[in-house]
Simulated scan of single mutants.
Amino acid sequence: MTNQEEFLTRLQREILTEQPEQTKQLKKGIAAKNKRVAELDRLLKKLYENYALEKIPEERFDALSAEYESEQTQLEKAVLDEQRQLDEIQSGEDKIERFMALVERYRDCTEYSDEALRQFVEKVIVHETVKDEDGERSREIEVYLNFIGKFDIPVQPVELSPKEQKRQEALKKRRIHQRNKRAQARQERMNAQLKNESPI
């Protein structure tokens, strides 16, 4: 299996995995809401007939018709929203095809221009810098691709050679030492400042 086939398989799995259950729930919700809209239509007609035949007072007619019409409007808006979600889910295959066509178009490029990157990247979200317990800073960056949205690339742990492991440990110790020296220098400056400010 080629890298492209593996990538396509993973993309389909991640984008289309939840589709069957979501599609089922949305279709069920749309059907239930449409059924209630039809019921409300019948109730409104019957209510109007009763009002026209003077079987119910005008105040009661006004209150019930306003209630039914309000519910009907809310249901129709909900149906439109759920239908939009359903259409979006069902266009998942199309999105994958469009993205893969883009990949194919730029597959043999050796240099990527800004325009090529804009073709692929929808948006980039850069989160605040955070420190871990060792004082190491890190920052999460989310990349959203056109057509497929956020796509996490699996990160495989890198096996370091013993020499590289020693180098990394030495770097870490050096950073900790430098951080401690800066903290000590800050403390000494603060102590000196306090000493200068204290009355004699």
Rank of each mutant, 00 (worst) to 15 (best):
110 T>A: 04
67 E>P: 02
46 K>D: 12
134 D>M: 08
44 L>K: 11
130 V>I: 14
65 S>W: 05
144 Y>V: 05
106 Y>G: 01
96 I>W: 08
162 P>R: 01
85 Q>T: 12
161 S>H: 06
61 F>V: 03
53 L>W: 07
151 F>K: 00
87 D>P: 03
44 L>A: 12
55 K>Q: 04
122 E>V: 07
159 E>K: 06
92 G>W: 12
99 F>E: 08
54 E>R: 02
137 R>N: 07
52 A>C: 06
105 R>H: 06
52 A>V: 08
79 V>G: 01
87 D>N: 06
66 A>L: 14
144 Y>L: 08
44 L>F: 09
103 V>N: 09
146 N>C: 11
148 I>A: 03
134 D>Q: 10
130 V>T: 14
144 Y>P: 03
150 K>T: 00
160 L>S: 00
148 I>F: 01
141 I>Q: 02
57 P>R: 09
128 E>S: 14
82 E>A: 15
123 K>I: 00
93 E>N: 15
159 E>W: 04
118 R>S: 04
93 E>R: 15
79 V>Q: 08
158 V>E: 09
94 D>T: 14
65 S>L: 09
134 D>W: 07
96 I>Q: 02
161 S>E: 06
126 V>W: 00
50 N>M: 12
51 Y>K: 13
56 I>Q: 05
157 P>E: 15
71 E>P: 15
52 A>Q: 14
61 F>Q: 10
137 R>E: 11
141 I>P: 15
113 S>L: 04
122 E>P: 10
112 Y>V: 03
53 L>Y: 11
42 R>K: 03
49 E>P: 06
52 A>L: 14
156 Q>M: 05
158 V>L: 14
139 R>W: 00
131 K>F: 02
48 Y>Q: 09
94 D>Y: 05
72 Q>H: 05
62 D>M: 11
90 Q>N: 06
155 V>Q: 07
106 Y>S: 04
57 P>V: 07
105 R>C: 01
85 Q>A: 10
47 L>R: 06
65 S>C: 05
68 Y>L: 14
55 K>H: 05
149 G>R: 11
161 S>G: 05
102 L>W: 10
68 Y>T: 09
51 Y>P: 04
162 P>H: 09
88 E>T: 11
116 A>V: 14
138 S>K: 04
163 K>P: 00
116 A>L: 13
63 A>V: 10
115 E>R: 03
63 A>F: 09
43 L>M: 13
92 G>Y: 04
105 R>D: 05
52 A>R: 11
103 V>C: 10
94 D>F: 13
154 P>I: 04
95 K>C: 15
146 N>S: 12
45 K>L: 15
140 E>C: 01
94 D>M: 10
145 L>N: 00
43 L>S: 12
118 R>K: 07
102 L>F: 06
66 A>I: 14
94 D>V: 14
124 V>W: 04
